[in-house]
Design a binder for these strands. Structure first.
Lengths: 101, 101
DNA sequence: CTCGTAGCGCTATATATGTAGAATTAATGC
DNA sequence: GCATTAATTCTACATATATAGCGCTACGAG
């Protein structure tokens, strides 16, 4: 049967990255740089999130000759809700983030 | 001034690879596997040979989604002549290569 | 024959996505 | 609680092309 796990730290990081620049389209390489996630972790994650209806996606033709085409992703409504849901601190305790100057 | 060097061992190997399957189109990755030449050696060589009018080239759209497009190369008439010219032993002296068992 | 330098080879890195298989993590049943 | 097992993460590797920059090599001049 299909089990449903609560999002892992990596998933939350990816969702946060996608949420941070919504509604712009992002590609995997871009997201791997922002999050530090390796390709073998990131691409399967993007596919799973897509399969679960969290993301829209489309292909963009190679920007320069000889470069691979990019697959673009973006949170849809369901995905954005899900991301916001899980982006906030786990417990009910409110925490104030000090801002570094 | 533009000097003209006699083709290096690497160039001869590449020309031989191209000649061996003429007139089929070959792409760089393919040729790098056949010759063992690293990409940073091979691609500049292909570009130089192209610039000197030895090769025809064209782009092939990505065979599978997410894979980089391929640039195809093939010896033209001048290139084929040049390749045959330099593929044969250098001097008039015939040398017998001992074969290591 | 020697010297300067243009041309060339090579290592490292960048751009992008993707899969196989091992190791790990977490949900469920008992 | 503990074992089972599905789901996920992670390390390699594969697919392709391309450039920057260092260092070597051989051409041509003298």
């Amino acid at each position: 049967m299909t089990r449903d796990r609560t999002p892992s730290a990596q998933t939350i990081e990816l969702l946060a990255a996608l949420l941070s620049q919504r509604p712009e389209w992002r590609h995997g390489y871009d997201l791997s740089e922002q999050t530090g996630l390796a390709s073998g972790t990131l691409y399967p994650m993007l596919m799973r999130l897509s399969d679960r209806g969290m993301l829209e996606s489309k292909w963009e033709p190679s920007p320069h000759q000889g470069r691979p085409p990019r697959k673009l992703y973006r949170l849809n409504a369901a995905g954005a809700t899900f991301a916001r849901e899980h982006a906030k601190p786990r417990t009910g305790t409110l925490r104030v983030q000090p801002v570094r100057s």
